[in-house]
Amino acid sequence: MGEEPVRRRRGRPSGGGAAAEELREAFLDAAERLFVSRGYRATTIEVIAREAGYSRGSVYRHFPTRDLLVEALIQRTTRRHMLGILDRLPKDAKPLDVITESLVIVASELNRDPLVRSISDQTDERTVAMMLANNAELHRLVEIWMSAMVEADAGKTLRPGLRAKDLGLFLIATSMSLLLGVIPGSEDPATTRRYLDVFFLPAVAAQFPPASPVFTAGETSE
């Protein structure tokens, strides 16, 4: 028989201990593993602490409530998906292409992420969307991102006079609609792109394509 895995002792490791940010990430990593493997409801702060090898009090010092820990997890997962856009688009991609692909990822990939799926399946379906909508740090990051885009674009493809703050809030509002499944067929990337071309781009683009059919599921070509 093979050797039993050695369980990490609770408390700070020897040799100086973990930095606060490292410890915070360790708790988030443990929580993500448990939410996916055990389920959202079965994963308590005590279980997360045991998985990470620390005391429950250590977790509470970083995350006073489980809701705050979950919000941090959702934010981290969202950022991970958004950063993945950079690997898919050329470096000279236009701001509108980046924004569109970001929303497609929210609709078709973030919703299927194992962590997001675990939380959504065992809570009110609005939980994840509301956590993102009410997250001040996410709002700040999106506004910074949009500010850089608006400045770099200089009115070439985005509507002249469009404020980064307004664009950021509109982007978040559209993301919430996609996450909640309010838009029919939004789990299909092609449908999401058609929806964005017809309804989103006219609000933010200096020039936009003519309208075309969006919700084509079940239709037959004549």
Rank of each mutant, 00 (worst) to 15 (best):
L196R: 03
M149P: 01
R12G: 11
S175D: 08
L96P: 01
K91T: 11
G2M: 09
S118A: 15
I74V: 15
E71K: 01
D92V: 06
E137P: 01
A93Y: 04
L167V: 02
R79N: 08
T77W: 05
V150E: 02
R80W: 08
T44P: 03
S175E: 09
N134L: 08
A217Q: 13
S58Y: 11
T78I: 07
L132K: 03
S37W: 08
K165I: 08
G11M: 13
R41K: 14
A217N: 06
E71V: 00
L141M: 14
F35H: 02
A107I: 06
E51T: 09
E101F: 05
T174S: 13
A18N: 06
D121H: 12
G16A: 08
A26E: 09
L180D: 00
S212H: 06
D166I: 00
W145K: 04
T191C: 12
R159A: 15
V104A: 01
L141Y: 11
T191W: 01
G57V: 10
R50V: 11
T78D: 04
D29M: 09
R140M: 07
M131T: 00
S102H: 08
A93H: 05
E21N: 10
P90M: 14
R140A: 15
D87S: 15
T78V: 09
E219N: 11
T43H: 02
R117F: 12
D87H: 15
D166Q: 02
V116K: 03
R41C: 07
I119G: 00
A211T: 07
E109S: 10
L138C: 00
W145H: 05
F170P: 02
L180Y: 00
M1I: 04
A31E: 07
A19H: 14
D197H: 11
G185Y: 01
D92Q: 12
P64D: 07
A190F: 09
R33Q: 13
P209R: 07
L138R: 00
R76V: 04
G185P: 05
S221D: 15
G11F: 10
M176H: 02
F208T: 03
I119E: 01
W145D: 03
R112N: 14
S58H: 13
A72H: 03
I105L: 08
A173L: 09
V182T: 12
V6S: 10
V182Q: 05
L23H: 10
Y54N: 06
G16H: 11
D153F: 14
E46R: 15
A205G: 06
E21G: 09
A31Q: 08
L103W: 04
A129D: 00
L167K: 00
L201G: 09
R193G: 10
L28K: 15
V198Q: 12
F35V: 01
R117W: 09
R50A: 13
L115V: 13
V214S: 02
D29H: 14
L23W: 08
A148C: 06
T100V: 11
S102F: 07
E109D: 14
E22P: 03
L68T: 10
V6F: 05
A154Q: 13
V70E: 01
